[in-house]
C-alpha cells in the first residue's frame, strides 16, 4: 500500500523543526530513520498530515564523550552507534546489543533517538536506556527538560514526549566501578523482533557480594519491564549460581506478567525470561569480577 498525502518539511536546524512542530501540533510527526514510521504510513495505520524530516539537521548527529559518560545525538544512525569505538569503550552494553536490532540495511537508516522515541515494547534500546540510567534531553519551542529513562516510558508505544517536543540528545553515564553488564535475547530468526530479551548490570562490593543489580526485560509487557524484586533479592548476596538462579526464578514468576501472541505463549515467555535472566546475570557477574581485578581495587 501507499502512504496518504502529507505536507513535507525538511528543516536545517533544531529551532526550525521545533517551530514547525509548535505550529502543526498533533497533525505533525517528526521523521527520523523512517524504519518504523514509514511502514505504518504505508499500511495507513498512521496518516500524519505533516512530516518534519529531521535528516537534514546536522546538529542532531553526534557521539561525544565527557568525563561522566557519553552524549549521543538523537539522529545518530544505529549503524554508526554499532561501529563507534567510543561506544564500545564507554558503553559496552550498547555495543554488545546493537547487532540484535534488525538488519544492517535497517540500522543504516534507523536512528538511536527514533528507536527510543518509538517505544516499541519489543525494542532493545529503551531497555538499555533504563538499565544504564540514561537521561533524555527533550526540547520544544517552550523550552527544554531532561527526563530519566525510567520515567520516559508510559505505555505501549507511548512516552512522556508531547506532540511539540523533540528528543534531541541522550546522556549515558559511565558504568560504576566493579560493574559488569550483559544483554541477550531470543528471536525466531536473527534480526527479528525478540520474543523476549534482557539486559543486566551487576556491581560487586569489595567483599565480592552484590552491591547493586539491574535487570530489565523487553517483549514481556507493554513497555520495558524492570525486575525490581529479583534485583532486591540479589543485594548483599554472594553471586553464586544458586543465588542467580533464585533471582531469575523471582524475575520470571513475580516481576513480569507477559502476554501471549502468535510469536510466543505467555508460559513460553516466562520460561525465556528465566533462562535469559540467569544467563545475563551470570555474564554480568563474570565481567564485574574481571573489571574489579583489572582496576586492581582491593
Amino acid at each position: 500500500m501507499k502512504p496518504a498525502a502529507f505536507d513535507y518539511f525538511a528543516p536545517k536546524s533544531i529551532d526550525e523543526a521545533l517551530a514547525l512542530l509548535a505550529q502543526h501540533g498533533y497533525d505533525a510527526k517528526p521523521l527520523a530513520g523512517g524504519q518504523s514510521l514509514v511502514p505504518t504510513m504505508n499500511f495507513r495505520l498512521a496518516q500524519p498530515a505533516v512530516l518534519v524530516d529531521l535528516n537534514g539537521i546536522n546538529e542532531l548527529f553526534f557521539i561525544r564523550e565527557n568525563s561522566a559518560g557519553l552524549r549521543i545525538g538523537a539522529m545518530t544512525r544505529q549503524r554508526t552507534v554499532e561501529r563507534s569505538p567510543l561506544v564500545q569503550r564507554r558503553a559496552p552494553l550498547i555495543h554488545e546489543t546493537m547487532p540484535h536490532i534488525a538488519h544492517p540495511q535497517i540500522r543504516n537508516r534507523g536512528t538511536f533517538g527514533g528507536s527510543l522515541a518509538h517505544a516499541d515494547p519489543a525494542s532493545e534500546l529503551p531497555v538499555l536506556a533504563i538499565t544504564l540510567n540514561a537521561r533524555m534531553r527533550v526540547q520544544s519551542s517552550r523550552g527544554e527538560r531532561w527526563v530519566n529513562a525510567s520515567d520516559f516510558y508510559l505505555d505501549l508505544f507511548a512516552t512522556d514526549l508531547q506532540p511539540d517536543e523533540l528528543l534531541v540528545e541522550i546522556d549515558i553515564p559511565d558504568l560504576p566501578a566493579r560493574t559488569g553488564w550483559a544483554f541477550d535475547e531470543v528471536s525466531r530468526r536473527h534480526g527479528d523482533y525478540a520474543m523476549a530479551g534482557a539486559a543486566a548490570t551487576v556491581t560487586l562490593a569489595v567483599d565480592g557480594t552484590v552491591a547493586a543489580a539491574r535487570l530489565v526485560y523487553l517483549s514481556v509487557g507493554d513497555f520495558p519491564t524492570e525486575a525490581f524484586l529479583a534485583e532486591t533479592a540479589l543485594i548483599g548476596e554472594r553471586p553464586t549460581s544458586a543465588a542467580l538462579a533464585a533471582a531469575a526464578e523471582i524475575a520470571a514468576t513475580q516481576d513480569i506478567s507477559p502476554g501471549g501472541d502468535i510469536h510466543a505463549s505467555a508460559a513460553y515467555r516466562r520460561h525465556l525470561a528465566k533462562v535469559l535472566a540467569a544467563r545475563v546475570l551470570a555474564r554480568a557477574v563474570d565481567r564485574a569480577v574481571e573489571r574489579s581485578a583489572e582496576r586492581g581495587s582491593a
Partner: peptide, 16 residues
C-alpha cells in the same frame, strides 16, 4: 544503495 550504504527503498521517500 543510498550514498553507498544498503537501505530499504520502500522506507525512504523519493524527496529524501
Amino acid at each position: 544503495l543510498l550514498d553507498g550504504a544498503p537501505v530499504r527503498s520502500c522506507l525512504v521517500f523519493a524527496v529524501q
